[in-house]
Computed example of a mutant assay.
Amino acid sequence: MNQAHLTGPPMRLRLGGQVLPMVGRVRMYVCGITPYDVTHLGHATTYIWADAAERILRWHGHNVTVARNVTDVDDVLFAEARRRGAAHTMLATLQRASFESTMATLQVRRPDHSPSAAQHIGHVVQLASALLDRDAAYERGGTVYARTSEAYRRTALDHATAVERAEEFHDAPEDDEKDDPLDIAVWQATGPDDEVSWPSPWGDGRPGWHAECTAMVLALFGSGVDLHCGGADLEFPHHACEAALAEAATGVTPFARGWLRAGLVSIDGAKMAKSTGNLVLVEDLLREHSPGAVRLLCLNRPWARPWQYEPGLLDDAEATLEQLYAAAAKPGMQPGAAAVPAALLDDLDVPRAVAIALEDGGQAARTLIELLALS
């Protein structure tokens, strides 16, 4: 804990218009990768924002515990492994190592916990049992479905759009076994030809995606977290259903005190996504630009706002970074040195913090570079 930053008036994080008072320990969960391909800029943006939030909280004296999961039980991973003629476990291991290397280059701190879905199968079974005990789930044909038909009300979506999103994320709203199209599988029954399955009280199967994250959070942090991070596209169905499952199983609300969902990155007018091949790969960017410039590209904007990637933006970030280095070389303790961390606590306002650092220079610029790991 950095006691130097605990003097003066209380400093509280404001996020998305909501003040989130923190006392001592901060439990932080970050939705991680499905390890079947290389890291693109959309992924990196989420993890850089989560890293910045962690660093800001640590700067202000909090003991932050971070978990970032790996979804290594997923149909997309299994399909890619079949396409490559490789074992899904080997593919996941190789891609996870590549991702971790990229994160280290970008100075994203290693999480305290790196749970994987495969390590938490037993906790998903426990979650399904708890939901059944509370009549928040039902079992049919070896599949345990959670009653999540109202989860979409946690968002601004209407019912029809929620069903469309459920279909997009492969939640099978057309499944006739469900009581409601928006119910989700916590435990999915598998057949004799399925390549990956585990035993359960309801027969062989594997966990549903949303249940994996819920089980990992509950196993690591108890009934909930202080700050939950992920991409904006995960708000529904993933985050909404994850929270609904946890609250139904534990009876404790809210599951997450705050949400940090980084705005989506697009290219040529379309969302950056592996599934469409519409990608800007981080490893390509790092061949010609510094890690600090990539971080500043992602951070020097409102965190929740979607944005369009253009190569010139990275050149601009590189130029701004050079200006910050020059400003940091100035001597002295200008008033802006305190204003920089205050701006970052105010809804993670990096653009305002950058403007202060460039105007005041000296310690203000040095503080910003340190806080955001731009060196």
Rank of each mutant, 00 (worst) to 15 (best):
L296Y: 02
L299D: 04
R305L: 14
V282E: 05
L296I: 04
C298Y: 07
A304T: 11
V282Y: 02
S290W: 06
L297H: 07
A293G: 03
V294A: 05
V282R: 01
D284C: 02
A304N: 14
T276D: 04
L296R: 00
L285T: 05
R287E: 09
L279D: 03
C298Q: 11
R305G: 13
L285N: 04
V294Q: 02
L297C: 12
N300K: 14
T276K: 04
P302S: 12
R295P: 08
R305M: 15
P291N: 10
L297R: 05
N300W: 14
E283W: 09
L297A: 10
V280H: 05
P291T: 08
L286I: 00
L279R: 15
R301M: 03
A293R: 07
W303H: 12
R301D: 01
D284W: 00
S290V: 01
V294L: 09
L297S: 08
P291D: 07
R287F: 01
P291M: 08
T276E: 04
L286V: 00
N300I: 15
T276P: 01
L285V: 11
N278R: 10
L296Q: 00
L281I: 07
L296P: 04
R301K: 14
L279I: 15
R305Y: 14
G292S: 10
E288M: 08
D284N: 08
P302E: 12
G277N: 10
P302G: 14
V294N: 02
L297G: 05
C298G: 11
S290N: 09
E283T: 09
L297F: 14
V282A: 07
V282N: 04
W303G: 01
R295V: 02
W303C: 06
E288K: 05
V280K: 07
A293T: 13
A293H: 08
P302V: 11
W303M: 08
W303I: 09
E288R: 02
H289V: 12
T276Y: 01
L281G: 01
R305F: 12
L285R: 00
R305E: 15
E283F: 08
E288D: 15
C298N: 13
V282G: 01
L281N: 07
T276I: 12
V282D: 05
R287L: 07
P302F: 03
L286T: 04
L286P: 03
H289Q: 05
R301G: 03
N278V: 03
R295S: 09
P291K: 07
H289D: 05
L296K: 02
V282I: 08
R301F: 09
V294R: 00
T276N: 01
D284M: 00
A304F: 14
N300E: 14
A304S: 14
V280Y: 01
G292T: 09
V294Y: 00
R287Y: 00
E288I: 01
G277C: 10
P302A: 06
G277Y: 11
R287H: 10
T276R: 02
N300P: 02
P291S: 09
L297E: 03
L279S: 06
L299V: 12
G292C: 12
G292I: 04
A304L: 13
G277T: 08
S290I: 02
H289S: 10
L285P: 06
P291H: 04
